Computed example of a mutant assay.
Amino acid sequence: MSSTVKGVIARSKGASVEVVDVVVPDPGPGEAVVKIQACGVCHTDLHYREGGINDEFPFLLGHEAAGVVEAVGDGVTEVTPGDFVILNWRAVCGQCRACAKGKPQYCFNTHNAKQKMTLTDGTELSPALGIGAFIEKTLVAAGQCTKVDPAAPAAAAGLLGCGVMAGFGAAVNTGGVGRGDSIAVIGCGGVGNAAIAGATLAGASTIIAVDVDDRKLEWARGFGATHVVNSREADAVEAIRALTDGNGADVVVDAVGRPETYEQAFHARDLAGTVVLVGVPAPDMEITLPLLEVFGRGGALKSSWYGDCLPSRDFPMLVDLALQGRFPLEDFISERITLDDVEKAFEKMHHGEVLRSVVEL
């Protein structure tokens, strides 16, 4: 039997979100129903509401979530009812070119649940990032469920489902930052500060946070930044070079995703250094770079999608590190809210007042 539960939807572009009744079908083959315990409010959800992803309204919002598996469909072996899981938006196929090469973190054929959740009138919903977790329980592909230690607080664990993993992975997986390295992170919201926390854990010696907001720079200090630069008051490239003996940083992470920040990242890296783009640009944005500099500097220009993570490998590891007190996962939580508070949380996010609001159910 299907279930009818409360969930948060965006009905049309720019409209305030609504809490409505949502029909969740029983899981079919390869699917699972998860009772949501907590879900972070991510900027991607706001992008969906504003029509910045696509126009497949109405959207069921929310995707940074943790909860307990309630039921599974035929053929599911990854999880069983009662498992505490973090949801991910890249269930790997195991068969594509990337998976066949032993690189499932780059899977070219990730998938979601085949059935649709609907409004009570039968209108099909588009779940954000194939999850839709501002809801009491949701339907996903079983491969989107990653089992982790149930001792982890759900509100913190769920943040690994997107923003924290994206930032941590941008620094550690994509950027390869290691002991003694220097790193600069441009943009110190949730993703940027996760990159800083990851670099701290990896043993980077010089960690430079760049932002236009002193409040965010103070957050960055808390996550391990050794230096901060307000780029409204100083030239970011010159400041990063000055803090790295005139060389530039080994790794520069652009957690904003604008042409001007990418150009800053490009010019602020050392010879043979690495630029990592993890901030999401708008579709119409373009950059112009001097090709001779691209050639002459060497190194690498990389994009980091979901922090190049493999959820089955990375989620349990980071949960264990958090439980050991070695990774400050709970420090990303600014406030705990209900489903009725999501619209207010978007407003606070827009004004840079929070790292993460977390819906608790």
Rank of each mutant, 00 (worst) to 15 (best):
Asp341Lys: 12
His227Ile: 03
Glu233Tyr: 08
Ile333Gln: 05
Arg297Glu: 06
Gly273His: 00
Asp314Met: 06
Ala300Ile: 02
Glu263Ile: 13
Lys302Cys: 14
Glu286Gln: 10
Gly299Thr: 01
Pro283Phe: 00
Glu286Arg: 13
Leu329Thr: 03
Val276Asn: 04
Val212Lys: 13
Thr338Trp: 04
Ala268Trp: 10
Leu289Tyr: 09
Tyr262Ile: 15
Gln264His: 00
Ile337Ala: 01
Asp254Trp: 01
Val342Arg: 01
Thr226His: 05
Asp245Val: 08
Asp340Asn: 02
Thr338Cys: 05
Glu260Ile: 10
Pro328Ser: 10
Val294Ala: 08
Val319Ser: 12
Asp254Leu: 01
Arg215Gln: 15
Phe346Tyr: 14
Val276Gln: 04
Val229Pro: 09
His350Val: 00
Arg241Gln: 10
Asp340Gly: 01
Ile337Ser: 02
Phe327Pro: 01
Asp213Glu: 10
Asn247Ser: 12
Glu218Tyr: 03
His227Gln: 09
Ala255Ser: 15
Val294Lys: 00
Gln264Val: 09
Asp320Gln: 13
Phe223Pro: 08
Glu260Pro: 03
Ala282Gln: 15
Arg232Trp: 09
Val278Phe: 07
Val228Ser: 11
Leu289Pro: 11
Glu238Leu: 10
Glu347Val: 13
Arg215Trp: 02
Gln324Asn: 11
Phe346Arg: 09
Ala322Cys: 11
Arg269Val: 15
Val276Phe: 11
Arg258Cys: 03
Val275Asn: 11
Glu218Gly: 01
Glu263Cys: 06
Glu286Asn: 08
Asn247Lys: 15
Ser303Gly: 15
Ala322Lys: 04
